[in-house]
Design a protein around this nucleic acid. Structure first.
Lengths: 234, 234
DNA sequence: GTAGAAATTTCTGTCGACAAGTAAAATACA
DNA sequence: TGTATTTTACTTGTCGACAGAAATTTCTAC
C-alpha cells in the first residue's frame, strides 16, 4: 500500500536513535514522501528501522512539538495537514520573518556567515541552471535559513525554520508548475539581499526582505488559485 | 537537598501521563521552583509521581523542544539556564511580538476574546491590589497570552507564549524589587491596550504594544543593572 | 601525600511485553 | 437486506528490566 523512503538501518550508536528517526521522518514529511494525513505506525517503523518503539515515540513527540505531526489520543499519529483555511496566518508570519531575519543578518553577520550564505545561493543557482525544481525548493530554504542563523536570534531563526519547512511542503504540492520565469527573478532578489547584508544596509535589507516575501507569497497564492485540487484539509 | 513542588499522584487516566508530567515540570521551571541548572533525575521523578520513566522521558523531550530543559547526551537533563549574554535577542523578539500580537488582536478579536482579555486584566489588577508580586507576574503573562490568542495566528502566539514564559522566569529572579510604582503604570497601559483592541484601532494597538514592551524591557534592564548577583550562566 | 589507574556506582538509552482503548469484523436481529 | 450488537484484532500507552556510558570512588604506585 504505502511505499516508504530509503531506510538504511546500518550501525547506530547509543544516543543517536531519536535523532536518526527524527531526521528521517522530518525529511519524508517535508518532501511529501509522507503526504499530509498519512498515518504513522510505530510498530511498522520500528521493524523497518530495526529498533524499538521507544526512540520512535520520542521522535514523534518532538515532531508533534514542531507541528509536523498530529497525535490522535489512543489512535494513530498522522502527518499534519496543511491548513489552507488559515493560510493568511502563514503568509503574515513568514513575511515578517523574511524582513526581520534579513535586517538582523545585515546588522550582525560575520564574514563566515556571508560565505555560508553565498554558498547556499550558489547551490540555488545551480539548481535553477539544472532546472531541478525539487533542488530549488530545498536550496532556497537553506539559503534563507543561513540568513536566519546570521541574524543570531534563536527565537526568530527557530520560528523562521519552521515556517520555511512548512513553505517547502506547500511549494512541493505545486512544484510541477514551477518552470516559468520565477527562478531568475528570485536569484536576482537573493543577490540583492546578499549585497544589502554584506553592506550592512539594514533599511535595504528590510525592504528587499519584504519585496521577496511579497513575491513568494504572491507566487504561492497564484499557484493555489490556479490549482484547487486539494485545498480541503480535514 | 532539593524540596519538590506539590506532587499529587492521585488517579490518572491512560494517555494523560505525558501531559501530567509536562505541566508539573513546566510550572516548576517557570516558577523557578526548579531553578536554572537543576538536574532532573528521571528515576526520582518516576518514583515521586508513581509512574514509569517512559512518559517522563517523553515529557522531557517536549520540554527540550521548547527550550525549557537541556539534554546532555548520556548525562542528566538540566533546567535550561537563562542566557544573560544574548538577552538582547530576547528583548528584540518579545518587543516585536508585543507589537504584532496587539495589532492582530485589534484586527481579529471576537467579543469572547475581549471578555477573556478583560477577565485576565481583572486578575492582574487584583494581584496588584493584593501586592502579590508572584500573582502579578503570572496574571500579566496570562493577560498577554490571551491577546496573543485573539490575534489568531498560531505561529505568533506559539513564539509569544514561549517568550512570555521565559520573561516570567527572568522577572521571578528579581521579583523582590517589584514593589515600586511600576504596577500602576502597567495597569494603565493594559487598559489602553484593551481600549485599542476593542476599538479595532490597529495603529494605536501597535504603538501601545511598542510602548509597553519598552517599559517592560527597560524595567528588566534596570533590575539587571541594579542586581548583578547571578548574571553568569554556564 | 598525591597522581594516575582501576573498579564501582549511577543514570541514561533501549528493549520486549502487557494492558487499555479504539476500530473493524462478525454475528444476531428486525 | 439493513441495522444494531457483540466479538475480534490491532495500535497505542505504560511498565519493568537490562546494557552502555559517565562520573565518582577506591585502590595502587611513586
Amino acid at each position: 500500500m504505502n511505499r516508504k523512503a530509503a531506510s538504511v538501518p546500518g550501525e547506530r550508536k547509543r544516543g543517536e536513535g531519536v535523532r536518526f528517526v527524527y531526521e528521517i521522518l522530518r525529511d519524508d514529511i517535508i518532501n511529501l514522501t509522507l503526504p499530509p494525513g498519512s498515518p504513522i505506525d510505530e510498530v511498522q517503523l520500528a521493524e523497518r528501522l530495526e529498533m524499538s518503539r521507544t526512540p520512535i515515540r520520542e521522535a514523534l513527540v518532538r515532531l508533534a512539538g514542531e507541528g509536523l505531526v498530529t497525535t490522535l489520543p489512543n489512535r494513530s499519529t498522522i502527518v499534519s495537514n496543511i491548513d489552507f483555511l488559515n493560510m493568511h496566518a502563514f503568509f503574515d508570519a513568514i513575511t515578517l520573518m523574511y524582513r526581520v531575519t534579513t535586517r538582523l543578518a545585515a546588522e550582525y553577520r560575520s564574514e563566515a556567515d556571508l560565505d555560508e550564505i553565498r554558498a547556499r545561493q550558489a547551490d540555488f543557482a545551480r539548481a535553477v541552471a539544472d532546472q531541478d525544481a525539487l533542488a530549488m525548493i530545498a536550496s532556497n530554504r537553506d539559503f534563507h535559513a543561513a540568513i536566519g542563523r546570521a541574524g543570531r536570534n534563536p527565537y526568530y531563526s527557530g520560528l523562521f525554520n519552521r515556517l520555511l519547512d512548512e513553505g517547502r511542503r506547500i511549494l512541493r504540492i505545486y512544484y510541477s508548475s514551477y518552470n516559468d520565469r520565477m527562478p531568475q527573478s528570485v536569484i536576482d532578489e537573493h543577490e540583492a539581499m546578499i549585497a544589502a547584508i554584506a553592506a550592512r544596509d539594514i533599511a535595504a535589507a528590510d525592504r528587499i526582505g519584504q519585496q521577496h516575501a511579497n513575491q513568494i507569497v504572491g507566487k504561492i497564492q497564484t499557484l493555489m488559485a490556479e490549482d484547487r485540487r486539494q485545498p480541503i484539509a480535514l
